[in-house]
């Protein structure tokens, strides 16, 4: 479904991605784990067209998308829940959701998707006319996921959805991620620093170190790997 081949990316003189190659198949949950500053966020921003790669190719369903602007990429079915959630604080919950459907004009279908979301997260229905900035961290994460779903993605990119949330809320969010994958067949690309949780959720995983992919395997094998255990699972 999505394939990155030898992708390099720079911020000015700083090289953030080095020859990154990643393959994601339809229906999978794939995780990308790595330490802070490894290049995970940059990888997602390269896919979405915010940080265009300096070389390499990104293909989505056979179509080259590297270097395309985000407003060309979103309609293809790619949508991101960014690190830090980036809720529009002065927009209401409903307005935030409508922003997710910015490029769509099929009103009845938008309404249907919103109903689906209120079913998934009933708390968002209660908070509909409240400003996004007044929600709790967990509610904001639910809103960020819902906003991303409003573009009807076939590939959903999530950047550290567990960051800063209480364990109970994290569990709830991850259950929903799995549910979205199973119920809607949405392919998931999950970036996490919480490697344990990510590998238990995903089918396959990639490990990233200072801009390079250093390992890729089934989630089970990665969980059992001595090197991964030492570096990312806090076990010795």
């Amino acid at each position: 479904m999505l394939e990155l081949k030898n992708v390099n990316a720079h911020y000015g003189a700083i090289q953030a991605l080095r020859d990154v190659s990643i393959r994601i198949d339809q229906g999978e949950i794939i995780t990308l784990i790595g330490a802070n500053g490894a290049g995970k966020t940059t990888t997602l921003m390269a896919i979405c067209g915010i940080v265009p790669p300096s070389s390499g190719t990104i293909t989505f369903e056979g179509k080259a998308i590297q270097g395309q602007p985000p407003d060309r990429i979103v309609p293809l079915g790619i949508s991101q829940v960014p690190e830090g959630r980036l809720i529009f604080p002065e927009l209401t919950v409903i307005e935030n959701l409508n922003m997710g459907a910015f490029l769509r004009d099929d009103k009845p279908e938008i309404k249907r998707d919103m109903d689906y979301i209120f079913d998934l997260f009933p708390v968002l229905a209660e908070r509909g006319t409240q400003r996004g900035g007044t929600l709790s961290g967990g509610e904001q994460q639910m809103l960020a996921i819902s906003r991303a779903l409003m573009s009807r993605p076939r590939l959903l990119l999530l950047d550290e959805p567990s960051l800063g949330l209480a364990p109970l809320v994290i569990r709830q969010i991850f259950e929903i991620i799995v549910k979205i994958n199973k119920e809607r067949g949405t392919t998931i690309f999950l970036v996490e620093q919480n490697a344990n949780l990510a590998l238990k959720t995903a089918h396959r995983g990639y490990v990233m170190e200072v801009g390079r992919i250093t390992m890729s395997d089934s989630a089970q094998n990665l969980l059992a790997d001595e090197g991964v255990k030492k570096a990312y699972l806090g076990l010795t």
């Binding site: 915010i50 407003d71 990429i73 002065e90 997710g100 910015f102």
Partner: peptide, 15 residues
């Protein structure tokens, strides 16, 4: 309004 509040996020949504 969205762009004024967070330009990067607005871009990510296709604005």
């Amino acid at each position: 309004r969205a762009t004024a509040q967070n330009r990067k996020m607005a871009m990510l949504l296709g604005v």
